[in-house]
Design a binder for these strands. Sequence first.
DNA 1: GACCGCTGTTGATCCATGTCAAGGCGAAGG
DNA 2: CCTTCGCCTTGACATGGATCAACAGCGGTC
Lengths: 210, 210
Amino acid sequence: MLAKQTTRRIIEPGTKLMSDGNEVTTYSNLLSGVVKLTKILADGRQQIVGLQFAPDFIGRPFKRENQLDAEAATRVSVCSFPKSVFERLIINSPSVEHRLHHQALKELDEARTWMLTLGRKTAAEKVASLLYYISCHIDPERPHLEGPVEFELPLTRAEIGDFLGLTIETVSRQFTKLRKSGAIEIVHNRSIKLLSLDQIRRHAKLDPET
Amino acid sequence: MLAKQTTRRIIEPGTKLMSDGNEVTTYSNLLSGVVKLTKILADGRQQIVGLQFAPDFIGRPFKRENQLDAEAATRVSVCSFPKSVFERLIINSPSVEHRLHHQALKELDEARTWMLTLGRKTAAEKVASLLYYISCHIDPERPHLEGPVEFELPLTRAEIGDFLGLTIETVSRQFTKLRKSGAIEIVHNRSIKLLSLDQIRRHAKLDPET
DNA sequence: GACCGCTGTTGATCCATGTCAAGGCGAAGG
DNA sequence: CCTTCGCCTTGACATGGATCAACAGCGGTC
């Protein structure tokens, strides 16, 4: 549908899809990879306010200007289309709006969960929470089973700090702590193995279900 | 419209409108007052993840269970209706869904702004940010002018702490600090006067516009 | 009008995390 | 092979905010 006006692109890590303060001109669907959404204070302090995984929709509907940056965290493949196409699509099809509404609510739930994490959890709990979150989203295929999970972190230590409101050093120390406690194995910097999901959940102060 | 199946109620501060883990049974529109949305960890640590002001819609569409508590922070007046009415309404009218979608996106923007505040701002900046935010929403009438604004805080010091990820004591100290710096006047505990919006914005590290 | 209980303030001390500094490791490039 | 650079780790020390403790103001209420 509307194939002519959509373009598929591969985007390298670090490339911006949207910039804070710029006019919204295109929307995208994320086909693979991870995109990070960030906010920056005038003095440079930075906060990641969300991660998007395939097959998320990227862009802020109904707004002239973006309020955040979207940047590829890994190599990413997206399908983009101009604002005009988006607007025609959504006017003609309530089911598209319904789908976007659903995603907005899902992201709202997530953002609020992160507010709890940022405001009330310790550094160790924050790192465990992020590891668990990523492990749940990184691989759309994998069912939610117990047992060890291994995956490649889509974020550097600095980005993890910017997500969790911590410094690089604190993040690094919490990784070593989790490793020494036997909850995770650091296969090689970005490549992490969660030895027991249940244990990670306990470290993250998450309920058994979540 | 549908007047028969909606009920108007006055709710006293501290009364719950929704509870985490409970099934969603009713939705409401907030007519006046302030409602706080909170999340709680198993060990009692608490985080306010949003405030709702008139005329916000309250409730999580399309979900069986609530993931947070909604509680009247002030005396509140709401107009409630059962889930079944809500579902009929939204199926028959795309414009209702559109309105809710808009609000969800607005709340998402706000939640992400709070993530930046929680993760990266200092205690003083947090308190100033909250005062500015409340001053902008507490009175739907007041235009966004400069000059002093006086209003009644809808939250106790403890609740402010739960919003900003701080303790009561730190909140209190930041109030005295802001008072001594001449940015605010504490008329009487809950009754605050912002002497200069511009100065508050600077304390909050907000851009001149926001 | 004395006694409570609740909310808020203030001071003294402590500690989790930030800051500063050094060094390790692997990849890229001469 | 050696150098450089980016990313990560570790140690020593500093500090913002938490914790603990005391007390003030201010309705209720008996």
